[in-house]
Amino acid sequence: MIRMFDRTRRIRLLLAVLFTASILVITLDFRSDGNFLDAIGRGAMTVVGPLQEGARTVFRPVGNFFAGFTRVGSLKARIAGLQQENQLLVQREEQVSDIQRENGSLRKLVGLRERLRLKTLTARVVGVGPSNFEDSVFLDRGSADGIRKDMPVLAGDGLVGRIIQVGRHTSRVTLLIDASASVAARIARSGEIGVVDGAGERELRFELIDPEANVERGDRVVTSGYDNSVYPPGIPIGTVARLAPPSQSLSRLVYVTPFVDFTALDFLLVVTGPQK
């Protein structure tokens, strides 16, 4: 019994000593800056610092794993926000790409106009011909703007076709690839002349007058401007893609890949007058 009482007293005495020590430390810290305890703390950091680095390296994946659980709610909200932002950015990027493409197309038109030195009017494709048996497009310019029938139409890369129908504020263009289209042309390198016909397909037929004409794959084909053609001379048409096998015919047939992409027509030039 006495022993227990002694033990209880000892514990209470210990408690009093510890409380007093704590209060002394609080007082010491409160009354002075940079005391010896701070120095001990700095020394401890020197020792513990490398251990911290090691522990952080080893346990980082574990910590991040558990941190992920506790941040699920806020991360979900953040993901939703970022997805929305991403959608806006994708839309903006598409708009920028569109503007860049338009810009490129217009620059090509300007370049072509300056090279050929023709009087031109810029028009925009606003529609496609409805029939499956003809290849044509509608432009946003008409007679009120000075458009006339049979005027040649160009894109930045080369010849597109000619005006076949004119309204007050709109007009229709027959494309070069249309089965009914044809244009007098020549090989830019050798000068060999012939007629380019649309075939209703992406390749053009080029029938050279001379059956032994000097023609090779890769040769540039341009308009010849002969026979009072509606098309001025020197307008790029395409390149020779392949040569038909020789035959007993009185002409030489080759196939031409057009420069213009007829599936992506946007801004076009309508040639309104002769060269300056």
Partner: peptide, 23 residues
């Protein structure tokens, strides 16, 4: 007391408060 002092000294907290509370 010991762990409280260690907390205060190492983590730069007001010295003695953790020691008092932990005790």
């Amino acid at each position: 007391f010991v762990l409280g002092i260690a907390t205060d000294v190492f983590l730069g907290l007001p010295k003695g408060v953790s020691a008092l509370v932990f005790t």
